[in-house]
Amino acid sequence: MSMASALDAWFSREILIYEDALERYIARSWPHREDIVDFRQEVYMRVYEAAAQERPRAPKSFLFATARNLMADQIRRSRVVSIEARADLESLNVLVDEMSPEHCASAQEDLRTIAWVFEQLPPRCREVVWLRRVENLSQREVAAQLGICEAGVEKQIAKAMRRFADAFFGERGMQLDNIRTTGRKERKAEFKVVRWR
């Protein structure tokens, strides 16, 4: 494995798994929601650059410390920052442990997440992913089967990748299953009542 790909593997294994927690961490103190993703990427860049020099021993702490420092910089620099953000900065130090009830998703849960993301894809995109990833057809074969051009397949795949990343790292485990109309088995009401007197 080359140096770069070892680092890349380390990055996705040790850092990306905290994406959800990281976003929440940033959202707590950063009033501008629309910046969160850019902010997150900025944090990733700094962590990646530092790790290229030397891998941090405690990746999670390092990640959150980096986020904290970056946020502190930004807040100090900003002229129009809310007082709230300043106050929250104080509490950032103690938040890290609280932030992520460690997500040790089982393989089974991961699979459910993946299935869920797949369900959320728009229909055409879903067909493309299924044929490419599960049926193992090439992009050209997928195009032929669906009667669309290869560029179209490529576009759908690019779209699916982004959706997968957001859902897999960002909203792990969320799933909506309101499509299930049967629900759980109806049970007979079995309960007892104890009156106080």
Partner: peptide, 30 residues
């Protein structure tokens, strides 16, 4: 890296139980 890692995970769709699952998913999602 982020997209590549997520895309690699999507390959595990193959591991979904039963071959018919895909069709079922499609119907349900539609």
């Amino acid at each position: 890296i982020r997209l590549e890692a997520a895309w690699a995970e999507s390959g595990r769709l193959k591991g979904l139980p039963a071959a018919g699952y895909g069709a079922e998913l499609c119907v349900a999602a539609q």
